[in-house]
Simulated scan of single mutants.
Amino acid sequence: MPLLHIALRSGKPETYRQAIFDSLYRAMRETFSVPEDDQFMAMTEHEAANFRYGTSYLGVARSDDLVFVQITANNTRTLEQKKALFRRIAELLGERPGIRPEDVFVSLVEVEKENWSLGNGLAQYA
């Protein structure tokens, strides 16, 4: 049950933003075995003054098209699954909506399964 927060510079059209949602969902389905309809994502857009990044940190040449993707997920995936997810996200975002791999920044936050309530005040995974 991943929860995704996506942040990018404002000004991209709706089709671009929807392509990000679609590509991220597909990458999670393919690499993390996320069930169908398990889509919980929010996107925030930021003016240039409110969006800062290192343009060359760790030798990666980033541009103003940088997209931050923070994924909160159960701590049940292997290192190989995580690497596959990062690789597939960059591939799919490159295909649609056309984001350079250098501009795909992903952070995975892992939590214990009992730390979720998916509605009704219940701990569904506990």
Score class of each variant (00 low, 15 high):
residue 9 R to Q: 13
residue 55 T to A: 12
residue 2 P to K: 01
residue 9 R to D: 06
residue 24 L to R: 11
residue 71 I to P: 04
residue 100 R to V: 10
residue 29 R to G: 03
residue 49 A to D: 14
residue 93 L to V: 13
residue 29 R to A: 06
residue 89 I to G: 03
residue 38 D to I: 02
residue 23 S to Q: 08
residue 76 T to D: 03
residue 41 M to E: 12
residue 19 A to Q: 11
residue 57 Y to H: 04
residue 90 A to Q: 03
residue 12 K to V: 11
residue 19 A to E: 07
residue 111 V to N: 07
residue 123 A to D: 09
residue 4 L to Q: 12
residue 81 Q to R: 00
residue 34 V to E: 01
residue 91 E to D: 09
residue 22 D to G: 08
residue 123 A to R: 15
residue 83 K to N: 10
residue 41 M to F: 13
residue 7 A to S: 11
residue 58 L to V: 11
residue 114 E to N: 14
residue 48 A to W: 10
residue 24 L to A: 07
residue 117 S to W: 05
residue 52 R to T: 12
residue 124 Q to E: 14
residue 124 Q to H: 11
residue 16 Y to G: 12
residue 76 T to N: 04
residue 81 Q to W: 00
residue 27 A to M: 05
residue 87 R to A: 13
residue 77 R to V: 00
residue 74 N to I: 08
residue 101 P to N: 02
residue 18 Q to E: 15
residue 62 R to W: 00
residue 18 Q to H: 15
residue 88 R to L: 05
residue 93 L to F: 09
residue 77 R to Q: 01
residue 61 A to H: 09
residue 49 A to P: 07
residue 38 D to N: 06
residue 12 K to A: 13
residue 76 T to W: 01
residue 119 G to M: 01
residue 124 Q to Y: 08
residue 119 G to P: 02
residue 110 E to H: 00
residue 53 Y to A: 02
residue 14 E to V: 15
residue 100 R to W: 09
residue 99 I to K: 05
residue 49 A to I: 10
residue 98 G to M: 12
residue 126 A to W: 11
residue 108 L to T: 01
residue 8 L to K: 06
residue 53 Y to D: 01
residue 126 A to D: 12
residue 59 G to P: 00
residue 50 N to C: 08
residue 102 E to N: 02
residue 4 L to A: 07
residue 25 Y to I: 13
residue 33 S to C: 08
residue 6 I to F: 02
residue 56 S to W: 05
residue 108 L to K: 02
residue 17 R to P: 14
residue 122 L to G: 10
residue 87 R to E: 14
residue 44 T to K: 11
residue 55 T to D: 11
residue 44 T to G: 13
residue 30 E to I: 10
residue 60 V to H: 05
residue 95 E to D: 11
residue 13 P to K: 08
residue 121 G to L: 00
residue 102 E to Q: 03
residue 4 L to M: 12
residue 83 K to V: 10
residue 68 F to Y: 07
residue 85 L to Q: 03
residue 118 L to I: 06
residue 48 A to Y: 11
residue 115 N to M: 12
residue 12 K to D: 10
residue 29 R to D: 03
residue 80 E to A: 15
residue 51 F to Y: 08
residue 34 V to H: 01
residue 13 P to G: 08
residue 68 F to D: 04
residue 14 E to S: 15
residue 38 D to V: 03
residue 7 A to K: 12
residue 115 N to L: 10
residue 118 L to R: 05
residue 44 T to Y: 09
residue 109 V to T: 07
residue 78 T to F: 02
residue 61 A to K: 08
residue 23 S to V: 09
residue 111 V to A: 07
residue 1 M to G: 07
residue 83 K to F: 09
residue 50 N to P: 02
residue 28 M to V: 02
residue 86 F to W: 06
residue 81 Q to G: 01
residue 122 L to F: 14
residue 65 D to M: 03
residue 117 S to G: 10
residue 93 L to Q: 09
residue 111 V to L: 07
residue 82 K to C: 06
